[in-house]
Amino acid sequence: MSLLVLLGTMAIAIVRLNRLFAVVILFDIFSLLSAALFVSLGAVDVAFTEASVGAGITTILLLGALSLTSKRQRQISWKRHLPAILITVAIGILLLFGLSDLPRFGDPEAPAFGPLYSRYVFGSPHEIGIPNMVTSILASYRGYDTLGETTVIFTAAVTVLGLMVRGSGARTWSGGGMDHHLILRINSKLMLPLILLFALYVQFHGDYGPGGGFQAGVIFAGGFILYCLVFGLESVQSFAPAGLVRVLCACGLGLYILTGLCGMLLGGNFLDYNVLAHDPLHGQHLGIALIEIGVGTTVAASMFAMFHAYAGYEPQA
């Protein structure tokens, strides 16, 4: 309840403010609050993703865009406000009418808890053999959806690189780091191994608890981004050159598709993991692990490549 009130307050504050830096930081808090709300609604995987993506990567990208554009919004005239208010209120009233048709919050008889729900919730422990139902739906039952979404992320990374990187992109940028701050330097060096270890844990523990390729990829990229922010972009060139990161974007997606094709070659359908090993349950384990690694690689590499594109961008005169 108090979370909901705070969420509403943040959103209204964002509307009122013209200083964009404050808007971005408030949006960061807004994301963290919504992550807390997702935990309280039982959606731990979603909360995990929202906390790492919404509060982490989105904020960094927004700040990157702010540093390359303007820091303030101009005053808006009432000519712009009035139609916007009218449209918003009209749509709000329509939505409120629609609310009365929704099932009661938390109603176990709601249409969302039909046969499909029973199949996923009570079938998955026997058919897939892993406790986390979100992972089994994500990677196995609805593998096609996830393939599509991984492709979208890959495409977005390609688009951002195409828009923002000129030439080979190998040009290094220095002087922007913060390595003259002793505390930042020592702390980020201490944190980095822990962040990467945590990312690996999230990646491989996704079958048993909240986590999986999407979250792990973002956390992995987050670790590298922290290092870049403190030590400058060129410091990661030696172990994560721009070219390698771009190849990895494609490799993850490739691994996903290859896993699907392996299922076809072994006599099953595309993305059918039952045929990957002698025992269907082992096949499911293997298939899910492989495609989660694929997703993790693509997400980590794409996020890092996008950050790199923003940070290394030089405005044209």
Partner: peptide, 30 residues
């Protein structure tokens, strides 16, 4: 249990959302 299906849809939507935001911001910068 809570229904896992919306969780899956939203989990991927969040990551796709940040990817599309990145494209939008890149366009703004250009």
């Amino acid at each position: 249990y809570a229904n896992p299906l919306p969780h899956v849809l939203i989990l991927t939507a969040i990551v796709v959302g940040v990817a599309t935001s990145a494209v939008a911001l890149a366009l703004a910068v250009r």
